[in-house]
Design a protein around this nucleic acid. Structure first.
Lengths: 182, 182
DNA sequence: GATATCATGTAAGGTGTTACATGATTAG
DNA sequence: CTAATCATGTAACACCTTACATGATATC
């Protein structure tokens, strides 16, 4: 049950329309919780019905295709605050790549080096992207409490990408030992 | 579409019943792909219907509650081998904890230190668990190709837990600076 | 024969993904 | 008035989670 809370957080940071939210999920929020516009519109409908958010200007007759901006109601803020205080265990990780390497231990590693190299490139790009965000969004002079927390979250994303780069590099070295490929 | 391939891999490593698979998913396979028994039974049914696996002794009339062991058919092995060669992009990570910290930047950090400490404890336990598995399953003398690949996968799990321990430690230090709690 | 455990399964609902549909607005 | 783009939405399906149901087997 995290998507509604991700949306509440985003709307508290700045009231937005569904499409704007989608774009923000593709950027800053997306580095720890991704969502498509279909999920977001569905969830906005639920949150509105539950009385946690409301559409802003509200034209008399709702028209499809017309921009609709949402803001969080007090009940929504309360729900979000309560959620941050609830105990919730970490979910076990799911990595298709680790799974595929384990499968390769049984059926052979043919083609794995190319795929590992491709993932290595993608993770390096993601890491560069995050480092750019860090430079732009968190210069040394910005150091409010909220900034420090958001920076901490971004550093989580950065360190996770560094983990993948390091692990993939090691994995490729291991494959090279056997196959000479790479 | 990874669960069926996780099951094929597990069954190739050792033919098993649904319950045995569930237990193996709770242990070794679970550290990168978790699944409940409901998912596993459903998927076993699909894989059998698709002709990728078969039930072993096959009593004339199938009886509910009676143990049923499965093995992988050649078509199943082919499908798994093909899957390891397919290109598949990494999925964006999803961390409810990072999300909650970002929410806390908006609605306040009350109660977060306790929760971060709890997660730190859980990740330390998981890390110890993996390190124990590493000692038992991968002593220096075992160094076949398959062993090296499985060891590499386990090191992925280990390094991920180390990442969380390090990040949570940093996060708690950051919270302490402000609140004096912890 | 009562209880616990092993083992397989069903049902319902929530969440995520993919493909498609529809209207509004802007630029040429 | 055509095309591109902005913006909101539906539908169908796959996948995951939780709760529950049922029979088989072992132990007392």
């Amino acid at each position: 049950m995290s998507l509604p809370h991700a949306i509440l957080t985003a709307l508290l940071e700045k009231p937005s329309s569904g499409l704007e939210l989608t774009r923000r999920f593709d950027r800053s929020i997306g580095y720890f919780w991704s969502a498509t516009h279909q999920q977001i519109y569905r969830e906005l409908g639920k949150l509105e019905q539950a009385g946690l958010i409301r559409a802003l200007p509200a034209p008399a007759v709702p028209v499809r295709g017309q921009r609709k901006e949402y803001e969080v109601l007090p009940a929504g803020r309360d729900e979000l605050a309560e959620w941050t205080r609830r105990a919730e265990d970490p979910k076990p990780i799911r990595s298709a790549l680790l799974l595929r390497l384990r499968a390769a231990a049984v059926v052979g590693t043919e083609g794995m080096a190319d795929e590992l190299n491709r993932h290595l490139r993608l993770h390096r790009e993601q890491l560069d992207d995050y480092l750019g965000m860090e430079r732009r969004q968190f210069p040394p002079e910005r150091d409010s409490e909220a900034d420090r927390l958001r920076h901490l979250v971004l550093r989580g994303g950065i360190e996770l990408e560094r983990f993948w780069v390091a692990w993939l590099t090691e994995a490729l070295a291991g494959l090279d030992d056997r196959t000479g490929a790479g």
